[in-house]
Design a protein around this nucleic acid. Structure first.
Length: 155
DNA sequence: GCCAACGTTGGC
DNA sequence: GCCAACGTTGGC
């Protein structure tokens, strides 16, 4: 099965590419949207590459690359009453929410901003540009390669 | 901080 | 099953 490509959003203040680099590996907890969950649970495979996107940032944009290192398993934060991700409707015997683990690959020296992405003819059809509020989304190989190249070319 | 987009909830 | 109210995302 060929590698697939994704984009995942994280609020920069909450968890940035620097945090990701420091941690090396992290679990991607807190996805509470069914479409995003389905992608993580059913489609994401170990070895897939992911664009790490800073939302609520100045500027918002892709900050680096991570790799899926563990496929979907129950998001146990949903069972922790005190967690901000607690969801009483997620039953440990029949979990509603899932997460994956991702491993740090690279940080761009500067983010590839949403403005640059919107301005690029080959990137203007990205899910990121077309749709609001989807924190886990598919990216084509062409889109992934183009953004990674833009990231590497920053000095 | 504002607010548009839009997913979810719950009354009926 | 409809849809208004509500809550959240996320750019600006």
């Amino acid at each position: 099965m060929a590698k697939r490509y994704w984009l995942m959003k994280s609020e920069e203040e909450v968890y940035s590419i620097r945090d990701m680099e420091n941690d090396g590996v992290t679990c991607w907890e807190g996805v509470r949207n069914y479409e995003a969950r389905n992608l993580m649970r059913d489609e994401m495979k170990k070895g897939d590459w992911v664009l790490f996107y800073h939302s609520n940032a100045t500027p918002p944009g892709v900050a680096g690359v991570v790799e899926v290192s563990k496929e979907a398993y129950p998001d146990y934060f949903a069972f922790v009453t005190k967690s901000k991700y607690f969801d009483s409707k997620s039953d440990p015997d029949n979990p509603r929410w899932f997460m994956v683990d991702v491993t740090f690959k690279e940080a761009f020296s500067e983010v590839v901003s949403l403005n640059e992405i919107k301005a690029s003819p080959k990137l203007k059809d990205m899910v990121l540009v077309k749709r609001a509020r989807l924190s886990v989304q598919p990216v084509t190989k062409e889109e992934f390669d183009a953004i990674r190249k833009m990231g590497k070319e920053k000095k």
